[in-house]
Design a protein around this nucleic acid. Structure first.
Length: 1043
RNA sequence: GGGCGUUUAGCUCAGUUGGCUAGAGCAUCUCGUUUACACCGAGAGGGUCGGGGGUUCGAGUCCCUCAACGCCCA
């Protein structure tokens, strides 16, 4: 190794070079690895596995910075830490991305490729993005145990999924049922509610007449229903009317009156109009509505046109008497509200659609048509029958699939469900009992409310990318087939209930004739197979059973993450050591989807909660308060921030903005690739393929560049200037340590006795004690912003601006030098450790350099420093070193210094000009200030000529006062009287304001009676202020006289 | 529709249980290259704490109400 020369240290930290080198050193040194055999107490965090859909964004950078900061502190505190890394297969999101790519690049659909080939393609995509994601996490500095990296679709996780599914199936907590789903006819899959968006389009509102069968005298021959989707009438199974039209109209009216009270003037007219219309309607329609209600109660039936099917007239609250004719057609299999009506009224549900969006055989002559074709034909046919009453133009809300941008069809499909009642309750109890705490506490409510609904969890997804459901099914045509098949299956499994679990699902259609007509089986046999029984699976297929094609909801595997990654269901040493994990750090949008499900699955599978603390961090928005996303163009790549500012600055910036609020704003800038000028992103320029730099006027490309011409331009980075503060802080720390190393030549370690400590040494020890205690407590409580603020303030304005400055004088004195060196090495050592969790790279780099000059450090007890800072012992200073008296003493010095500097500035005295000054104060104060008096020279180029009660103001002087002192700067030959008068007048005004405020308070008898202690304090500060005022007034008078 | 959050200096945010002249960083202005750092140092200016009402001796802080913005659930 070449000899280390502090003079060679550059004045900037070369983070780009250091980050990779240091990370490799940590990783190859095994510092990230959790040891299941360790004697140390475990501390475990599982990463919220990022989706392999794409690259990481700034939200991930925040999330992982917080986890890494915590795990690094715990590692230094002596815990056996494990941060478990991995990625999520993210079912539909990933499959959709790959399918879209396939369509764009090759014009193919997944059906052209087939299941096997498509899944292979997605695996390739996954490999590519996983590598990129893990690379990004490492660049951030994440100290995960990378050898343990898991993927929610890998063998270990798959085994856990299969065991869980089998267990729940066996307990009958998994069952098969029908459910109305959002069907994407293009992708031929269900999409979740949050992947559906509503689009307002121009459409029509058709009014049809349905004939009444055998109307009684006085009853209408037709009822009128209205719809925006005529084709669905082929699947109608009822028409509903309101059971209490009278009361329903009353309620609407009273709601309108409530609204009227709250309305602004402009709205009032509209609401009043609505009320009048309602009253008129009531007058005209109520008898008819009541008649319809009576007809429904009497069991009157209607003839569904075109299909010639008898359908009932039913009573249900879904019908709105205030709208249209007051009747609503019910299509249970193709409308969510109608589906609910059908469940309430026990109506049949007729599915009229094939998976590709065409109409099925239920629709007779319409079979095979697309929805659009069917709509046209249905309207024409009804019109021909003179059953079309009228058509209105109207704006309608059309649900669309976010993935394929095609209309969503509500569709009744077979789905697997997890029964949630018991499972949810266990997860509710865990939080109510305090086994799991959620920080900030306000998020508990959403968690509990969501679980409290105990809605069954539909877990099947009609996708190819995911955990295929391990169930084999066969339909039995008759009752006679059932028993022999069950017996055959049991025999094949060797009557082993740990291999196969069987469920019998009877057909919900009990009428054998109807079953035959609709080609429905008598019952279905479902066999769930445990993992590792491939031969049995083949044998089942030999019996004619077919494997379920659907895969599981992504959250099913995510729910197992804390234990599946540790090897469950195997009772591995890792599981024994690291489960339950300690803390989960995530963002609020997945509290119910993920956190709640992990709790209940952890309890079900392991009998213990998966973690005892959950911390929910804020979400990052751009300067406009919008969430960042690639599709908006305001997304920031953490790697761009790292390239410009360094990983430590990114991390410090992230932690610094992590307050208890819900959202934090981070204004976004473009950075010109030519001149490095950065300027604000606007809603306009963030969507352009190329942007012109306002600095150098050259054009650069953005993420939207598509044309060859645009792509040839240099690409501009998207960054945020908010990281500049953090970058500057990194630089400050780097240079403070550079100064230290330049002055530690000849360092020798040896203990310092307590009596030899100077005032500033004791002050530094006191500060270090407070700061280390505060930072520890803040981080334990997830108060990241408070921790970074404390560290920033301490490192910059206390350690650098005062302590290091004061040490300079002591370094110049040979006799004081060795002592000063030891104190500097010790305090820097301590500061680096406190900063390490947030700023790991620079602290490690400085640590390693420091060790070359002073490998042994400490003031009372000298020890050899740990080889790496990453597992050095976390500072735990003796609380006895916290010394308020010393800190107050120091504050006196700082106050005097601040006044001196202000005089220099207001009098415009150059730094090189030495000034003389005196301080008038009590003898006690003088004793306190005395030892620090020499430092006025270095810090303000000012010489203290007199200190104590007898100090007097020179003839021409500037005067400042504090509560404890009067400061006179001798300005003979220097003074700008005008400036001084102005300054004194301002000071006088301030004091007068302060005095009158205090006087008012003390004149308030109730206050003095209620808070005597506080009143006493104010009384004291009032007399001080009055004495200050006297001094200032006196000076002002003298100065004014000289004008 | 229900729930949650936010509104404090030009910008981004702190502000503990109500209490003395409401703080920080960035930006602005003035001065300054004293060899760790100009990604620096010293200083200054800048706030009717979203509007209205209430409780209180006293409100940025507690309560009510209105407004704007954001998020989650239906």
């Amino acid at each position: 190794m070449t000899t280390f020369n502090p003079n060679d240290i550059p004045s900037r930290f070369d983070f780009a070079e250091a980050q990779n080198r240091i990370f490799q050193m940590w990783e190859s040194g095994g510092y990230f690895e959790g040891d299941p055999k360790s004697e140390k107490p475990p501390y475990t965090v599982v990463i919220p596995p990022p989706n392999v859909t794409g690259a990481l964004h700034l939200g991930h950078a925040l999330n992982n910075t917080l986890q890494d900061t915590l795990i690094r502190m715990k590692r230094m505190q002596g815990f056996n830490t494990l941060w478990m890394p991995g990625t999520d297969h993210a079912g539909i999101a990933t499959q959709a991305v790959v399918e879209r790519r396939l369509k764009e690049d090759e014009g193919k659909t997944r059906h052209d490729l087939g299941r096997k080939a498509l899944v292979e393609r997605i695996w390739k995509w996954k490999e590519q993005y996983e590598e990129r994601i893990l690379g990004q996490l490492k660049q951030i500095g994440s100290s995960c145990d990378w050898k343990r990296t898991r993927f929610t679709l890998d063998e270990v996780c798959a085994r856990a999924v299969r065991h869980t599914f089998f267990d729940l199936f066996q307990k009958s907590l998994i069952y098969r049922g029908k459910r109305l789903v959002n069907w994407d006819t293009y992708l031929q899959t269900t999409v979740s509610d949050d992947e559906v968006f509503s689009k307002t389009v121009k459409g029509q509102f058709w009014h049809f007449k349905y004939p009444v069968i055998d109307p009684k005298p006085g009853e209408p021959e037709y009822v009128i229903v209205a719809t925006t989707r005529p084709e669905t009438m082929l699947g109608d199974t009822a028409v509903a009317v309101h059971p209490e039209p009278d009361r329903a109209l009353d309620r609407v009216a009273s709601e309108l009156r409530e609204k009227l009270k709250k309305s602004s003037d402009s709205e009032k007219a509209i609401v009043e109009g609505q009320l009048e219309a309602l009253a008129a309607r009531r007058e005209a329609m109520l008898p008819k509505l009541e008649q319809l209600r009576d007809m429904a109660s009497d069991g009157r039936k209607l003839m569904l046109p075109l299909m010639n099917r008898e359908i009932p007239l039913v009573c249900d609250v879904w019908a709105k008497p205030e709208l249209g004719a007051g009747c609503v057609k019910i299509t249970p299999a193709h409308d969510p509200n109608d589906y609910e009506v059908a469940k309430r009224c026990d109506l049949p549900m007729i599915n009229i659609m094939n998976r590709d969006g065409t109409l099925n055989i239920e629709t007779g002559v319409y079979s095979g048509l697309t929805m659009k074709q069917a709509r046209k034909k249905v309207v024409e046919d009804l019109d021909a029958l003179q059953l079309l009453e009228k058509v209105e133009d109207r704006e309608i809300e059309l649900p669309q699939s976010d993935r394929s941008k095609t209309p969503i069809e509500p569709f009744l499909a077979d789905q697997w469900f997890v029964a949630m009642s018991e499972l949810s309750q266990s997860a509710i109890d865990a939080v109510v009992d305090g086994q799991v705490s959620i920080t900030p506490k306000r998020y508990e409510r959403g968690y509990l409310d969501w679980l409290g609904e105990k809605r069954d969890w539909p877990v099947s997804r009609q996708l190819w990318w995911g955990h295929q459901i391990p169930v084999w099914t066969k339909a039995c045509e008759s009752e006679a087939e059932v028993q022999p098949l069950v017996e055959a299956i049991q025999a094949l499994s060797g009557f082993d209930e740990t291999v196969a679990a069987i469920q019998l699902e009877p057909c919900e259609e009990t009428d054998p004739e109807k079953r035959a007509k609709l080609e429905l089986p008598f019952a279905s046999i479902h066999v769930c197979v445990q993992s590792g029984c491939e031969e049995f699976e083949s044998a089942l297929e030999g019996l004619g059973l077919i494997r379920e094609e659907d895969v599981l909801d992504t959250w099913f595997s995510s729910a197992l993450w804390p234990h599946s990654t540790l090897g469950w269901p195997e009772q591995t040493p890792e599981l024994a050591c690291f489960y339950p994990t300690s803390t989960l750090i995530t963002s609020r949008d997945i509290i119910s989807l993920w956190v709640a499900r992990m709790v209940l699955m952890g309890l079900n599978n392991c009998g213990e909660v998966p973690f005892d603390k959950v911390y929910i961090h804020p979400k990052i928005q751009d300067g406009f308060g919008e969430t960042m996303s690639k599709s908006k163009g305001n997304g920031i790549d953490p790697l761009d921030v790292i390239a410009k500012f360094g990983a430590d600055a990114l991390r410090f910036g992230m932690a610094h903005l992590c307050t208890e609020t819900q959202d934090v704003r981070l204004p976004v800038q473009f950075e010109c690739p030519y001149c490095q000028h950065s300027f604000d992103q606007t809603k306009k320029n963030r969507i352009l393929p190329k942007v012109s730099c306002p600095g150098c006027k050259k054009e650069f490309s953005t993420q939207w560049a598509e044309s060859e011409e645009d792509k040839r331009l240099e690409k501009g980075a998207v960054i945020s200037e908010r990281f500049e503060t953090a970058r500057n802080f990194v630089n400050k720390l780097w240079n403070a340590s550079r100064f230290a190393m330049l002055n530690l030549e000849g360092y020798e370690a040896s203990p310092i006795s307590e009596e030899d400590l100077t005032v500033e040494d004791r002050w530094m020890l006191s500060r270090l004690t407070s700061v280390s205690g505060n930072v520890t407590a803040y981080l334990e409580d997830f108060k990241y912003a408070d921790a970074t603020r404390e560290l920033y303030e301490f490192a910059w304005h206390q350690f650098c601006s005062f302590y290091v400055e004061m040490l300079k004088d002591r370094f110049a004195d040979e006799t004081k030098r060795p002592h000063a060196q030891r104190m500097l090495a010790y305090s820097l050592d301590c500061l680096l450790k406190l900063l390490h969790p947030v700023m790991p790279f620079i602290t490690e780099e400085i640590w390693q350099n420091l060790a070359r000059i002073c490998p042994e450090r400490g003031w009372a007890d000298v020890e050899t420093a740990n080889h790496c800072i990453i597992d050095a012992a976390w500072p735990a200073l003796n609380p006895a070193w916290r010394d308020e008296a010393i800190e107050n003493q120091f504050a006196l010095y700082q106050a005097a210094l601040s006044d001196l500097r202000e005089i220099r500035n207001s009098q415009n005295i150059g730094n090189k000009k030495k000034v003389k000054f005196s301080i008038k104060c009590t003898g006690d104060i003088a004793d306190l200030l005395q030892p620090l008096g020499i430092y006025f020279s270095r810090m303000a180029n000012a010489e203290l000529v007199e200190l104590g009660p007898s100090a007097v103001a020179p003839e021409t002087s500037a005067t400042r006062t504090t509560a404890d002192m009067e400061i006179y700067v001798d300005l003979d030959g220097l003074i700008d009287i005008g400036a001084e008068v102005k300054r004194l007048e301002k000071e006088k005004a301030n004091l007068e304001k302060s005095i009158s405020g205090k006087q008012r308070q003390l004149a308030n008898e109730k206050f003095v009676a209620a808070k005597p202690d506080l009143a006493k304090e104010i009384q004291t500060s009032l007399s001080q202020a009055e004495s200050q005022l006297a001094t200032i007034a006196d000076s002002l008078q003298k100065m004014t006289a000289k004008l």
